[in-house]
Amino acid sequence: MHNGLMIEVADLVKDYASYRALHNLTFTVRRGEIVGLLGRNGAGKSSTMRILSCFMPATSGQARVAGYDVFSQADEVRRRIGYMPENNPLYHDMRVREYLKYRARLKGLSRRQSRGRVDAVMEQCSLTEVSRKLIGHLSKGYKQRVGLADALVHDPELIILDEPTIGLDPNQIRIVRSLIKSLAEQHTVLLSTHILPEVEMTCTRVLIMEQGQILADDTPENLQNHMNPEGQVRAEIAGPYEQLSQWLADWPSIAGYELVPGEGEYFLVSLTPKPGMDIRAEVFGYCQANGWMLRELSRARFSLEDIFVQVTGPKREEEY
């Protein structure tokens, strides 16, 4: 059919009256990926999504979805996209089932198809028990799922979600997240967020955006490794100081260590392993063999938060 790319964006520029929101934005998304678009407010995430969903055109540049141009073949693109805008707008005066049916018909499904699809997405999003309720009376978590169901109802190839978990409580966030993850098998997903752990948990790839450009493009793990190639290991061990330092000094797997007295008879040990080594099991094994107490053993992980600050620059952060 085509080259396996779901989204191809090249040199995309979007000018608003007073400023440029997108500066020659270029990226691609392959079929089946869950890509997280990460960036602070105003970084251009929503503009990108609005262009991809054919809500508004770009000033210049190219954008293709499933091989169709979003400017000249907007109808084809719209049929293939399920889009949930920011703040998940819904008609509050409609009932859940009625709304989904309306959306399905609007998206060109026949009466028969729409009946089947509406039932299917209500099942998928666990909406069956509220199908007759007014949308305006639903909790935010349910509303969010109605929005997702709407995005899914015509079984689109690409699902674009603008901040799908904003304003939800932790429980609801978990439900929505697992729902998004379950979509991965059949759909390509592009979601935006400024909540970093979300990307870590749901996405197979992260695009970090800042001022209308892509600053980083990688898997969450690679970004981790990139930021923190050694993966510092921390341990708290209670043992005789001499033996401990002797052991650490002679250990070939580590590039460096630090040993400082901690609480009581415990020592705080920081280890820098040689690249590509995971030494945590060995630390545990050695302590066990010597009968030392071990009460903490962890590998320092940079959160995406740190990565984000590092990539986008802490200076600009202070402006907020």
């Binding site: 809500f55 719209r78 805008p85 703040n87 707008p89 008609y91």
Partner: peptide, 13 residues
């Protein structure tokens, strides 16, 4: 006001 303008205008109509 509701924001549904966006969902409406991104539907294939």
């Amino acid at each position: 006001d509701l924001g549904t303008f966006e969902t409406l205008m991104t539907a294939p109509v």
